[in-house]
Design a protein around this nucleic acid. Structure first.
Lengths: 320, 320
DNA sequence: TAAAAATACTCCATAGGTATTTTAT
DNA sequence: ATAAAATACCTATGGAGTATTTTTA
């Protein structure tokens, strides 16, 4: 049973003529004859009575016609709907992200993406890099944003944007320490730490290591469990802390907090867009991935921090 | 777009494996690969991501699957329903017939046919031979029964049964004339005629011609417009008439009317089942045509009259 | 190493064409 | 004589097979 057979049969049935059907189907008349013959053989019944100049459909043909139309309709719909799916820009997008990008990068970018594609809804699943990558490998999510690059197989890494870890404090502490050397600042300033296990704390330790400093040498006055609590503690002057510039972008802009530059210690962190290397993305995700790489690198407010480590805070671009 | 493609696609989609699908479809694995590749090329999108040991359907495949299933379902239904149609023994049957068979032959045969096929309903269109044949040629009806054979092209004639024209009268007339010769009877008996144009009258004239008799030589006492009115006139003793034995079968059985034999003048009339020579019959009609030829020739009560032209009436078989 | 898909190749069925014949009006 | 379908014949595409290679777990 072939679809061409049915298509030609329907045309013959409608036009009651082999030759007219052949013209309409862009084939020759003998081809139509052959198709009908083959259908008749397959269905084991005559479909048209050849009466010389005219042909007439048999009872079987009369029964076949509406059924064949349904098949062809279903096929037509298939092609239509598939064409739509290939361009579809609606539905829900699930994206995995670690804390910083999930909290300070994605929401604003997503908001802008939704301005262009209002029929898209989002879910951001925050987890650590391991969880995000596992979700990508397990095909639970198509895209993730992480701040740690490993050498997982099957993962495609794409540099998305950078973030700076900066030493921040309120105006009082800033004024007291801003003129000292990096070593002096870090060892003398009252310090607020994130809890062990935090990605930010791990990054921080790594950078301190480059200055041959360990946590023991810091003057730790508190260990706090979230970026938000660190931020509030900074504002109240409890101490200084190293944290993502993005996390306090608004406070820097309002001059509630200040960056204390650490010359010679660039604490930059790279974020990556990750996806399964062999998995093809639905169109929606492909467009989003494009948007992310275009937008995050330029206007995400992330690379703005690269330019200088000046004490004057950069203009916030992630505010909503 | 081929149906095999869709069938194989669905199997691959369900089993998430080319090789398993190949086994289930009774083809080899490379064939499956080729089919999927060809579908992917035709739809211009990847349908499965090949991840080494596993394959995963893409968004397009997820959209395609239910649509493909619908197409295949429609096809399955097509084959099912067509198989039914090929055997179908229900619906309405329209059959054309001239007066005698339409009135005295068909109803009883149809009743018996309906006992075997209760889902069949009938319509009998009575008309003269010309009208019946034209209806067959015009494809208004598939089958007809007529008593006149012409040499129409495209008409297939099949001898169905015979009827006798007999000279009938009531008991009184019968007793007066039954012992005379055919010539005497016909010229002396008071005679009832059908109107000019009646098939029965035409047949009668033909047979009289064989005895070198014309209507002028008959002792015509009345011309009546229907078989029924002739019958009633016969019963009342107005005269004798030549008419179909079938039309008065019951009266002969009840000895209300009697046949006056005309030795040496067999007035037999042949009825034919007619159909278009090149038109294939729906199954229902094919079965009916079989039934008619089998039944009419044997038990239709028509050929019973052949045996003898005795005055004792044959048992009626057309009574309902 | 084993399993799955892809590739290379061969073969054959058949869809499609052209040219011609048959059939019916 | 004309118009339509059937037939004969040819070609090329592609469907299906076998054998083999590639890839990945």
């Amino acid at each position: 049973m072939d679809i061409h057979h049915l298509r030609i049969f329907c045309e013959v049935y409608r036009r009651q003529s082999f030759s007219q059907a052949s013209q309409h189907c862009n084939v020759t008349q003998p081809t139509v004859s052959a198709h009908i013959k083959s259908l008749e053989h397959e269905l084991d019944c005559r479909l048209f009575d050849r009466l010389g100049q005219k042909i007439l459909p048999t009872a079987e043909a009369n029964a076949l016609y509406p059924l064949a139309c349904r098949v062809l309709d279903a096929l037509g719909q298939l092609e239509e709907e598939l064409a739509l799916v290939k361009k579809e820009m609606k539905g829900q997008v699930v994206i995995g992200a670690s804390t910083i990008p999930g909290t300070y990068i994605l929401p604003s970018i997503m908001a802008r993406f939704r301005e262009e594609h209002p029929e898209v809804s989002f879910e951001i699943r925050v987890g650590d890099s391991r969880q995000v990558i596992d979700a990508v490998l397990g095909h639970e999510i198509f895209l993730g944003i992480v701040g740690t690059r490993t050498d997982e197989p099957h993962i495609s890494w794409q540099e998305l944007c950078t973030d700076d870890l900066i030493l921040a404090a309120n105006h009082h502490l800033w004024k007291r320490f801003v003129h000292l050397s990096a070593g002096q600042i870090l060892t003398e300033i009252p310090f607020l730490l994130r809890e062990a296990g935090s990605g930010t704390r791990r990054s921080m330790e790594k950078y301190l290591g480059e200055l041959r400093l360990s946590l023991d040498q810091l003057h730790v006055v508190a260990v706090l469990g979230s970026t938000a609590s660190i931020r509030e503690a900074l504002k109240s002057g409890l101490g200084a802390s190293i944290l993502s510039r993005l996390a306090i972008a608004e406070e820097l802009a309002r001059e509630e907090l200040f960056e204390i530059p650490l010359p010679g210690l660039p604490m930059r962190r790279q974020f990556y867009l990750v996806r399964h290397a062999k998995r093809s993305l639905p169109n929606l995700y492909r467009t989003l991935a494009d948007f992310l790489t275009r937008t995050a690198a330029r206007a995400g407010g992330l690379t703005a921090g690269c330019a200088g480590r000046s004490s004057s805070p950069p203009p916030s671009t992630t505010s909503r």
